[in-house]
Design a protein around this nucleic acid. Structure first.
Lengths: 110, 110
DNA sequence: CTTGACTGCAACCACAGGGTTGCATGTTCT
DNA sequence: AGAACATGCAACCCTGTGGTTGCAGTCAAG
């Protein structure tokens, strides 16, 4: 299902979302408290529509969630989501080094 | 200095490098052992030149290092580098959740 | 009811960048 | 020396996408 895909999102999609300056500006801004697209547009040097697009991307990978607050839509950052993928990356990196060390070890014992 | 910048590389540059499918193909291939650009081009469905560009990007953020092996240039993935940024991401995510929880706590006690 | 503010959709522009082909230049091996 | 393979550089194409402007719809407040 797509619901699972949303939460499980591939690491590359997540990294792609994180590989953009403006998106980090938005995320760090949200890190100080929930905010709507318009509110973010006021404190960042980009248009509201641009922000909306970025929020859509971030929402797609599950880095933010929406909270209806009256007539406006507030966005909340989900730190746990970032931490989760971070742990996956850490595991991957560790695995690489472990495997290459093993190869090196084998090569030395010939 | 730029030397420090290379090793310290911004998180966004790192994520940008990791936000690309082909680059992950290269990295996972390198995870199974060092390889040259030509060797990678043989087992991946892209040109050697494309691979070379990707390797340049990965090298710039410090995810791979070069090892001169005879006439060819072998590339080695640096898992520790990935793990390091992963831990930084983890810390950021944790900090977000911590701060937002604090805000929520304050709001409730009014 | 009207005004102001927030949202959403669509068209559009401009640049970055992933991918290719082509060529020139080494470097190992026979 | 010559063949075969590896690298490096440059020009080029084309899609993706960050950003903009413009407009229409909605909802709260005066």
């Amino acid at each position: 299902m797509s619901g699972r895909a949303l939460l499980d999102g591939s690491v590359v999609a997540m990294c792609n979302a994180l590989g953009e300056e403006t998106r980090w500006s938005i995320l760090t801004a949200l890190g100080e408290g929930d905010a709507s697209a318009s509110a973010l547009a006021r404190r960042l040097p980009v248009t509201r529509q641009a922000i909306a697009k970025h929020l859509a991307v971030l929402h797609e990978v599950g880095l933010v969630e929406t909270v209806q607050a009256g007539r406006e839509v507030q966005y909340r950052v989900i730190g746990a989501r970032l931490s989760a993928t971070a742990r996956r990356l850490d595991a991957i990196g560790t695995e690489w080094d472990r495997r290459l060390a093993a190869i090196k070890h084998i090569a030395e014992n010939i």
